[in-house]
Write a protein that binds this DNA or RNA. Structure first.
Lengths: 344, 344
DNA sequence: GCCAATCTTGCATCCGTATGCAATGCGCGC
DNA sequence: GCGCGCATTGCATACGGATGCAAGATTGGC
């Protein structure tokens, strides 16, 4: 009744040569059968593929990579999975890559000194392209090192000192939309809460916002650098503003900050939006929850992903091509945190 | 003034042979210099490594994979990035893998028919191991197919029909802890809200919870299958229970459901925990936010990750080894959703 | 000072697939 | 019926590094 006691040896997968010998053709034929567009008679291909299916042969991707020097792997560098915006982006990105036959090698980097060590595999693995997702952690120098001689795209961050392709939401447009919206809804003394103030996304949002406030003749009641893009940083910033007084609207640099802000204000007894209107940026799913009803500028994530994939597929992000910055338009989503529950 | 107009050709990376010829040694020597423990004189290794650094030589990982038939890549299969628990887990997992020199190839699968197609790369890429994270989507059959002849670990799900290694939080322990806690805090008519009722995690939590209620002589006032592990599903379930009445505590199968439940109840005018106590499962970061203050059973994520990594490193999840289920103890985290703000 | 044991090193080959080139076969036009 | 041209196919080799084996270099023992 027992299975025989011999060690179950891991059976080595079949190779193209073995398959070829079984069928009585050359290894080249097998290779061609699996290569779309290769020069091979349709019936032979059919026959080989059928045979392959029977014996469960699959081409070894590693060997293929070596001879084609193409891996079909895209490295994705990310550093902040705490902000729900990024997991959502990664999910869409990896699915879109998969749809065009590319795999995602994930590099989750940690703030610290040994960044090059963390990214060393990125170079040794010969990924076809690198997508760097808001790696606020990477300095311009590391950025250049990581993307040297390699197709690369930055998402949600622009490269300042390096010449790199960037796909990014039009942060200025969004910040202006928020400012306009505050203006239209009668807010006049407005505060801005930065996440990491030195990041390019923050600077773009902040500058455009402040400029637009001035154009409307509104008052910038406060400018706070919360130090990080986190829920608790948002809470602290909001409480500080509440205590100080003189603010009737706050634009948080992103939604997770804004969520903290809304909760903290309400717990402290302030009414949102009656006393203080709140707006964020990104439109993470939480922003749409009834509890938050957060007015925010929706990042065009789908388009951003599409553009990035297209650049990888058509090679326009390959080294040697002239890099450029693609700014994608977003959309203002008005919710109850600025216009009250009636307008929802 | 313009740079010369020649096409910038992508300079091909140097090979071990070229490096060897430059130094005047054999290619083998170079290979050995980069192979820890290889038979090579210390000074020669030193010399080669120094030279390599100078000319920026890095061993080609693809070629190495081919000859060693080891990729140092672990495939991570995931399907639900919406629940914040999973991004947090993925983040820790990928960092831990990176720490031991393994890369993470991400497979973000979508519910649907062509699962094998989505996972086909998993087999062709010869990953050293597969970690399947709560792939509630995968049937036992697909599971077996995906892990065939391959080191594999399931996290947060047990395999029922396949013989696979599982690392999982002790769901029954957690459910009992919640039941005990409800009992101690005077709750008597308790409801359970399932996520996907057929998932193994749900069944374990549900069965243990109901059993413990009975042991305490408490009433199971309702058993709801919310249909998915989502915020909105939690809202709907909670509102249904509130309308029906007769429930003074609800155990949601996970935190994201519970968060929806808390919000919906409060919006409907119920007091949490005075009228209804709420508990969840996972301890996602949101559970600790003051707004939620969610009592929950904390999954031992760090330990789960450690155990999984260890199994990969010591080969105990390799094919041929006897698979087993590792249940890791978690911890009840009491917060204001059950014991009121005083106890916080 | 000589020989054996050990450490180093290089040579040759392998890993499994892709592909340029040459050879073969087939079809078609005249 | 012959010849040209295209479609197929196989052969040989490349991709870049790992490694068994044997030769060469060192060291130590007596």
């Amino acid at each position: 009744m027992a299975k025989n006691g011999t060690i179950v040896e891991k059976r080595k997968p079949m190779t193209a040569r073995e398959l070829a010998r079984m069928i009585g053709v050359s290894q080249s034929a097998v290779s061609r059968a699996f290569t779309p567009g290769a020069s091979i008679a349709p019936d032979l291909r059919e026959k080989i593929l059928r045979f392959a299916e029977d014996v469960d042969y699959h081409p070894n991707a590693i060997a293929s990579m070596l001879s084609k020097s193409r891996t079909n792997i895209v490295g994705i560098v990310i550093s902040d999975m705490q902000n729900p915006f990024y997991p959502a982006l990664i999910e869409k990105l990896s699915r879109a890559l998969q749809r065009v036959g590319l795999q995602s090698l994930l590099f989750n980097i940690t703030r610290g000194a040994n960044l090059e060590e963390q990214l060393s595999a990125l170079r040794r693995y010969n990924v076809d392209a690198v997508i760097i997702v808001s790696a606020t952690i990477l300095s311009g120098q590391t950025l250049r090192w990581a993307t040297e001689d390699r197709a690369a795209i930055l998402i949600n961050r622009v490269a300042e000192d390096a010449e790199l392709n960037c796909v990014i939401c039009d942060n200025a447009e969004g910040a202006r939309a928020i400012a306009d919206h505050f203006h239209e809804t009668g807010r006049r003394r407005v505060a801005y809460v930065a996440g990491l103030s030195h990041t390019t996304t923050n600077r773009e949002r902040q500058n455009a916002f402040i400029t637009r406030l001035a154009e409307h003749g509104m008052t910038l009641s406060a400018l706070i650098d919360s130090g990080e893009y986190s829920y608790y940083a948002g809470r602290n910033a909001a409480l500080g503003l509440l205590e100080r007084g003189g603010t009737d609207a706050i634009f948080f640099a992103n939604d997770i900050l804004a969520a903290g802000g809304i909760d903290a204000l309400r717990e402290a007894g302030a009414r949102v939006p009656e006393d203080i209107a709140i707006a964020g940026f990104d439109d993470i799913s939480m922003a749409g929850w009834p509890h938050y009803g957060l007015t925010t500028f929706r990042q065009p994530v789908d388009t951003i992903v599409d553009v990035a994939i297209t650049m990888i597929e058509d090679g326009s992000c390959a080294p040697g091509q002239t890099p450029g910055i693609r700014r994608i338009s977003g959309e203002l989503i008005k919710r109850s945190s600025t216009v009250g529950p009636d307008a929802t």
